[in-house]
Design a protein around this nucleic acid. Sequence first.
RNA 1: GGAGAGAUGGCUGAGUGGCCGAUAGCGCCGGCUUGCUAAGCCGGUGUACUCCGCAAGGGGUACCGAGGGUUCGAAUCCCUCUCUCUCCGCCA
Length: 424
Amino acid sequence: MLDIKFIRAEPALVQAGAAKKRIAVDVDAILALDKQVRELGVVIDDMRSRQKSASKRIGEAPAAERPRLAEEQKREKAALQEQEREHSALQARLRELLLRVPNVPAAEVPEGRDDSENVEVKRWGTPRSFDFEPRDHIALGELHDWIDVERGARIAGSRNYFLKGDLSLLEGAVLRFALDRMVAKGFLPMSVPTLVRSDVMVGTGYFPGGVEQAYRCDERDDLCLVGTAEVPVTAYHQDEILDGQSLPRKYVAWSSCYRREAGTYGKDTRGLYRVHQFQKVEQVIVDVADPARSLAHHHDIVRNAEEVLEAFELPYRVVNVCGGDLGAPQVQKFDIETWMPSRRAYGETHSASRFHEYQARRLNLRYRDPEGVVRVCHTLNNTVAASARMLIALLENHQEADGSVRLPAALRPYMGGRERIGAR
RNA sequence: GGAGAGAUGGCUGAGUGGCCGAUAGCGCCGGCUUGCUAAGCCGGUGUACUCCGCAAGGGGUACCGAGGGUUCGAAUCCCUCUCUCUCCGCCA
């Protein structure tokens, strides 16, 4: 959420930012409503002030006088209550609108309509040229009985799966490697709730825009399954005022992630690329409100992910996500795409975002600076490793003609020292 | 699931209808005292919105877990909910 004061000061900037993101917003209408809310607020504050002093006088008046004075106050009160009802309706409407105002994208965000216009900023490694007909991960999974999508679908519907044997172990190895690496960099590991209240989904910016993408419990419990550990970790300090000295806070969390994938019928239906549940190690940073520091963190968290891919010996590229492909909350986003032979393309495996105040303001996540001033924090996050897609890349890139899969050196200690899996 | 107790400012903890945005202590900040430190003394110390002011600053309103209600007036009374703790039951 943007600061309403910022919107008042820079309406054109906000309107232009929304346009760059291809998100419809009427800034003028919001400002008109804001003005209305404030004007009525002044009236109400004034009425309450009179009400309070009148009540005080009644308390001090002789008992005989009180009933008559109270009677007068009753009429005043009715008028006040009517204004209050009007005011809170307007405030609620304003908040609804504000929750949908997108964050202003950075100048470095490229213009563009959709992901086809994202701009590649880096490429590492070279996609391997096979001297045999490479299998896709599903074929490899069937060959070794590592993946069972049929029973997954029978148990839980389409886009659900079982991982078995060495692939299940490999999933754990990938995630644990990623986690260990981040801990070594000073990130605090956390185990987190994956079922959260919907105000946390609003706070992190997923709601109201992304309600369709989240699994929700029924009306007995106001809880949602998170699509990423970013949600509980970023909301960890909700409603707190942190000591500025304690920032930045760097967290890393391993969690299951749940996505409804509404509106993706017929898209990526084969295999583990687009699934309803997967596991992910996520890095989150909370820091002071300094755009330069946020930017530096952004580069760092991208680099952290790159190092994991390099350790896995997987070719990747980094793209600067264009305005039209950017979500409402982000200032800027870099996606890392890893080479996937079956797609004959790079597929998104990581997403690194910086938000400035957008999430923190919704979460009421603040800190006290050295001068004692309370400010809203900045937040950022990025994937470190996400299980299903990382497994696709590892299987497909490191497969051999006989269907076995070579393990990169980094993963061997996590796989009992083995150099390959699926050897016959 | 059953029974009970609770939720107040950074923390501890008073406050059962008007004198309470809230006693006191601790912590923190400033000052004084003092070879240094410790102790002591004095003062200050919540958040949000809003109005006035160039500013320093000042005024108003709201907030005592959340939401409703009673009342001229609610931290205080009533209702609902959430959370915490204790005991019992069940259970990974």
